[in-house]
Design a protein around this nucleic acid. Structure first.
Length: 547
RNA sequence: GCGGGCGUAGCUCAAUUGGUAGAGCGUCAGCCUUCCAAGCUGAAUGUUGAGGGUUCGAGUCCCUUCGCCCGCUCCA
């Protein structure tokens, strides 16, 4: 493609507010249920946004399922099949995957300091026992004052002890250091839950400022069937990946695939995010493009590396500047529970610049998921590798040895990206203010392949035989590409509108067309014009849209 | 979920101590127009985010709620 000097501007110079305004004004993205005041974390894709999203989706599907990359070792395309699994699955799915139970850490807020703590990290000890008429120890304990501190945090414990001593003096109570027997705030004292009104938070100066522990489960719940009860509780999937693991055996049994192979899926996922923010970057309903690559455990490092670089190549194929993309390897302590290795592909969003923000994760999930589902469902997830069996037989191995190498649970490499996040990245990358241009204030410099409208077809003026020719051209081209015909208002205004929605080419039908059969092509990024024959327009578009 | 700021036409913004909700741009229609938001004429568009309260009277003051932005927190 011709260089587009304006299209790779530094994201740091772009205003999200202006981009969001353009997206709304031109029909890319609207706030969901806007007439009712919207709903935090939900967005609707307008006519152009839908077209853009579909173009990216098709590009991913093509490069993943119908035309996947070449295996460097064999020279053959790798094997990947498509899938579309249900959004709602048997809830046991999410117990096995670890989404129920493991990730709903109760949190406690401090109303005084506005700090938030994980409830299971918050420890308390008895600091002051208030004298009482009763000799019964349990009554004394029930009136005691507690001091909270953070588990394994020396400084926090010291502070709590200090505060306890001070409080003992002012309350005329007995100071008791039972920090060695500290227990969780959520625990019980003399058989009853600890009364939070007598607990002082780690950073607080008053008692009773800690809220009740609150669950933060990020899965949306729903009810299957007419009767609402716990037994009918189900979840909207928080990732598309599990649907793939659930169908791993079905695919294996029906599709004649052999390890290594992949299963790919595009679909909606739902996470009840605490803070949806930054336009469509983190929304509660979003679309994922995920592929699970099943391979032999010892080959997994090779494939991890392979997919890491393939995915970066794919992002670059969207027309994103290399400077705006990077890898970031996850530290060991930020790895998810299932993951052995993980690398993010990151993009320099206008709201993170000069920093980068997450775009896609390529994770080495080991055999965690298949093993979990094997355990929970009691369905065998083992793969029988006939080639290995034959090889081992040839090598004269014992039966036990042969079994050991030919039966295994595959390891999984997962490139997981967000389709709606890809839309955001293309919007950010393409959004280009053009203050020095006379007409449009902005252009959306989409790579032609992803532009919602490929070409505008304009009669220069709405008379002298031009509209008729333009209309014929439009009717011919629309069979192949999304194109628009527009004869209203001045040609400059029409060009400007096309610039803002990112239409790469405009064909103007002028007096020369009527006389000599030539049309003028106007380039969105440079505004340069060239003259071609009317009958070459289709070839011209074919050529430009190939890349 | 917490704290701060902000919500007026599709967009950008006006509206005196509380006193008739306006402009530009855009959109649409007509005319004009031989290449970059040109010109002329005309038109549509608002329960002032929503709900309640105070008041003779609320865009303006008070309460609640929703949304957006920033900072925490969270992000499997």
């Amino acid at each position: 493609m011709s260089a587009t000097p304006t299209s790779h501007a530094d994201p740091a110079t772009k205003s999200m507010d202006e981009l969001v305004a353009l997206c709304k004004r031109r029909g890319f993205v609207f706030p969901a249920s806007e007439i009712y005041g919207g709903l935090n974390g939900f967005w609707d894709y307008g006519p152009l946004g839908t077209a853009l999203k579909n173009n990216i989706r098709d590009h991913w599907w093509k490069h993943t399922v119908t035309c996947p990359p070449i295996d460097p070792d064999t020279g053959e395309p790798v094997s990947i099949v498509g899938l579309d699994s249900s959004i709602i699955q048997n809830p046991k799915t999410w117990e096995a995957s670890g989404h129920v139970g493991g990730f709903s850490d109760p949190m406690v807020d401090c109303t005084e300091t506005k700090k938030r703590y994980r409830a299971d990290h918050l420890m308390v000890f008895i600091g002051v026992i208030i004298p009482s008429e009763s000799q019964d120890d349990s009554v004394k304990v029930m009136n005691a004052r507690y001091f909270a501190f953070l588990e394994n945090d020396e400084a926090s414990l010291k502070t709590a002890l200090k505060k306890a001593k001070k409080a003992a003096a002012s309350l005329k109570g007995e100071f008791v250091d039972r920090s060695g027997m500290a227990m969780m705030l959520t625990g019980t004292s003399v058989g009853q839950p600890i009364d939070r009104s007598r607990v002082m938070g780690p950073d607080a100066t008053q008692f009773g400022t800690l809220t009740e522990p609150r669950e933060f489960n990020l899965m949306f719940e729903t009810t299957v069937g007419a009767i609402k009860s716990d037994e009918n509780k189900a979840y909207l999937r928080p990732e598309t990946a599990q649907g793939i693991f659930l169908n791993y055996k079905n695919v294996l049994d029906t599709m004649r695939v052999k390890v290594p192979f992949g299963i790919a899926q595009i679909g909606k996922s739902f996470r009840n995010e605490v803070t949806p923010r930054n336009f469509i970057f983190r929304s509660r309903e979003f679309e994922q493009m995920e592929m699970e690559w099943f391979c032999a455990p010892e080959d997994s490092p090779k494939w991890y590396d392979f997919w890491k670089h393939e995915r970066m190549r794919w992002w670059e194929s969207l027309g994103i500047a290399k400077d705006n993309l990077r890898f970031r390897d996850h530290d060991v302590d930020e790895l998810a529970h299932y993951s052995k290795m993980c690398v993010d592909v990151e993009y320099k969003y206008p709201f993170t610049a000069p920093g980068f923000g997450e775009l896609e994760g390529v994770a080495h999930r080991g055999c965690f998921d298949l093993t979990q589902h094997q355990t929970h469902s009691k369905t065998k997830m083992e793969y029988f590798d006939q080639e290995r069996q034959l090889k081992a037989k040839e090598e004269g191995k014992s039966k036990e040895e042969i079994d050991a190498v030919s039966k295994y649970i595959p390891n999984v490499i997962e490139p997981a990206s967000g389709l709606t996040r890809a839309v955001l990245v293309l919007l950010c990358e393409s959004f280009t203010p053009t203050p020095d241009r006379k007409g449009s204030a902005y252009i959306m410099s989409f790579k032609p392949k992803f532009a919602p409208v490929k070409a505008g077809i304009f009669p220069l003026v709405n008379k002298d035989g031009m509209p008729e020719i333009a209309r014929d051209l439009y009717l011919k081209l629309r069979d192949k590409y999304p194109v628009e015909y527009d004869a209203k208002q001045s040609i400059g205004k029409r060009y400007a509108r096309m610039d803002e929605i990112g239409t790469p080419f405009c064909f103007a039908i002028d007096g020369d067309t009527v006389e000599k059969g030539t049309v003028t092509v106007r380039d969105r990024d440079t505004t340069a014009q060239e003259t071609i024959n009317l009958d070459q327009v289709e070839n011209y578009l074919d050529d430009k849209l190939k890349a």
